[in-house]
Design a protein around this nucleic acid. Structure first.
Lengths: 253, 253
DNA sequence: AACTAATGGTGATAATAGTGAACCGATATG
DNA sequence: CATATCGGTTCACTATTATCACCATTAGTT
C-alpha cells in the first residue's frame, strides 16, 4: 500500500500557504518522480479529491474533500465539540483561543475564536505552524510516537526567535517535561511578543489528534494570567478529549 | 495507481447513512478482499483519513479530512460562494434551497437553507439521494460523461414513487432534454408530494461539480411559482458556476 | 457444552502492479 | 538562437499487491 501512502502524502502537501502546485513543483517538493506524481494526481482527480485549473495547469484540492468532511462532521462532530470550548476559553481568559489538528506530521489550526481585545493574537484558519516551536505542536509531539519525534528532529529545528529551542537534546528534555505535566507554556518560541499555553486533545485510541491553545501578548502574560489560562486550557482540552471518547483521568494539575 | 483508486473508492463508501463499517462488512460492500481492505485501511489510518474505534473495532473517517476541507475552503471558498446564493433563493422563492455535490458517482447535499414556512421541505446535511430520481442528480448526470451515465444505468433505476423513471431509454431522453434546457423540473420522482427544480453548477474545467436546487410541496408548485423558481435557480446556478471559474454564456431561458 | 457461523486479523505465494530516465512539444529567458 | 524551464508521455525494468487458507475470538443455537 505504498502507493496509497504516496497518494495520501501528496494530499498532505496542499496547505493554506500553498494551495496550488504545478506538476514539476509538486514532484520536487514531495520528492517523487514527475511521472509518478502525475499518475497519482490523475487517480485523485478521478475521484474529485484533486482538480486542475485548466488554464494555469495547476493542481489543487478538489470538492471531494468537502463531502468527506461533511460526512465526518455529521457523524462525529468536531466543530460542535470544539467551538463551545473555544468560546468559553476566550470568555474566561480574554485572549484568543484556537484548536489545531495534528495530521500527517503537520499542525494546522482548524478552529479559531479571537479575543475581543484590540491587541490580540490573530490566527489564520488552516494556517500551519512549526511543530517544534508552537505550543500546540509541542504538546502533540510530546504524546506522539518516537518515529514522529525523530521525523521532526531529523530535519533540524529551525530558529524563529532567539528563544526557539534548536538543540535536539534540549528539545527531547522539554518533550519529557510536557509528558509529565500535560501542557506546555510557550514563551516567544515562535514569534516575538507572543506567548501561548496548549494542552493535547486525545481521541478514543488515546492518540493526540490535536491541541487546544490560548495565545496572548507577552505583556499580558503575567504569572496570574498564566495560571488562569493554564487551568482553563487544561480543563478544556480534557473536556474535548472526553468528548472524543478518550478516557482522561482526573486533573494532573 | 489502481491501488490508489481502491483506497479512494473505500473512502467514498463512508456516508451520512453509514459512517462506520466493520472490516468484513466494508470488504463485502466495497467488493475487495478482507486482507486488502485492511491494508488499505491501515494506510489511510496512518495518515489520519480513517480512524478505528478501539472498542467496537469499527472504522470511520478520521480528522485528516477536516484539514483537507479547511485548506480547500480557505483557498477556494465554496460555502462562501454558495451560501449567499442559497439565502437569496430562499428569499425569492420562499422555499427550501440546497446545494448538492456530485462526487464519486454519488450526490450529497452539502449546503442547505430551509424555507421559513412551516410546511417546507427539509434536507439532512450530507444526506445522499438517488442520482436518477433527484433533480440535482439528474442535472449533474446530464452533463457528465457517458461512462458516468452508463454506470448509473447498469445498476437499474430503482423506483421510489409511481413517477420515477425506470426505463433506460426514457431516462436517456430526459437527460438529453436537460442538456438542451439546462435545468430539470422534478415532479415527485423521488418522493410523493415533493417537487424540485435544479440547475447544474460547473467548475473551471466545465465539469458539473454539483447542482443548486429548490424544493417545494406539490401544492405550492403551480405554474407561476414554477416559473419564478426556475428563473431564480437557473440564475443562481449560473452565478455559482461563474464564481467557480466556469465560463457560462448568457441565459438559455 | 458442543456446534455453527459470524467477526477481526494475518501470512505466504501467485499474480499484477508501479517506477523512472529519457524524451516530446511548447513556452519563456538570456 | 541557445538554454532552461514547463506539462506531459513512453516503455523497459522492477517492485508491489491480491488471494486464499488460516487463526483466535465472540455470539447465538441446539
Amino acid at each position: 500500500m505504498q502507493t496509497v501512502d504516496k497518494a495520501v502524502e501528496l494530499l498532505g502537501y496542499f496547505s493554506e500557504r500553498q494551495p496550488e502546485f504545478g506538476l514539476s513543483e509538486l514532484a520536487r517538493t514531495v520528492g517523487f518522480d514527475k511521472a509518478s506524481t502525475r499518475r497519482l494526481l490523475l487517480a485523485l482527480i478521478k475521484h474529485d479529491y484533486i482538480e486542475q485549473n485548466p488554464t494555469t495547469k495547476a493542481y489543487r484540492l478538489g470538492i471531494g474533500v468537502l463531502r468527506l468532511a461533511r460526512v465526518r462532521e455529521t457523524s462525529t462532530p468536531t466543530e460542535a465539540i470544539v467551538n463551545p470550548l473555544l468560546q468559553k476559553l476566550v470568555a474566561i481568559t480574554g485572549e484568543s483561543a484556537h484548536f489545531s489538528l495534528l495530521s500527517g506530521g503537520r499542525i494546522s489550526s482548524v478552529g479559531i475564536v479571537e479575543s475581543s481585545k484590540s491587541n490580540r493574537i490573530s490566527f489564520v484558519q488552516g494556517e500551519e505552524g512549526a511543530i517544534h516551536a508552537t505550543s500546540s505542536g509541542i504538546v502533540c509531539l510530546a504524546f506522539s510516537s518516537d518515529e514522529s519525534i525523530n521525523e521532526v528532529l531529523k530535519d533540524g529545528l529551525e530558529a524563529f526567535t532567539e528563544h526557539t529551542i534548536t538543540d535536539a537534546r534540549q528539545f527531547r528534555k522539554m518533550l519529557q517535561a510536557v509528558r509529565n505535566e500535560g501542557y506546555h507554556i510557550n514563551h516567544e518560541l515562535y514569534e516575538k511578543d507572543v506567548c501561548s499555553i496548549a494542552a493535547p486533545v486525545f481521541n478514543q485510541a488515546m492518540r493526540p489528534i490535536g491541541a487546544l491553545a490560548v495565545a496572548a501578548p507577552t505583556s499580558r502574560f503575567g504569572s496570574g494570567a498564566k495560571k488562569q489560562i493554564l487551568t482553563a486550557v487544561y480543563e478544556a482540552a480534557a473536556a474535548a478529549s472526553r468528548a472524543f471518547g478518550a478516557e482522561i483521568d482526573g486533573s494532573k494539575l
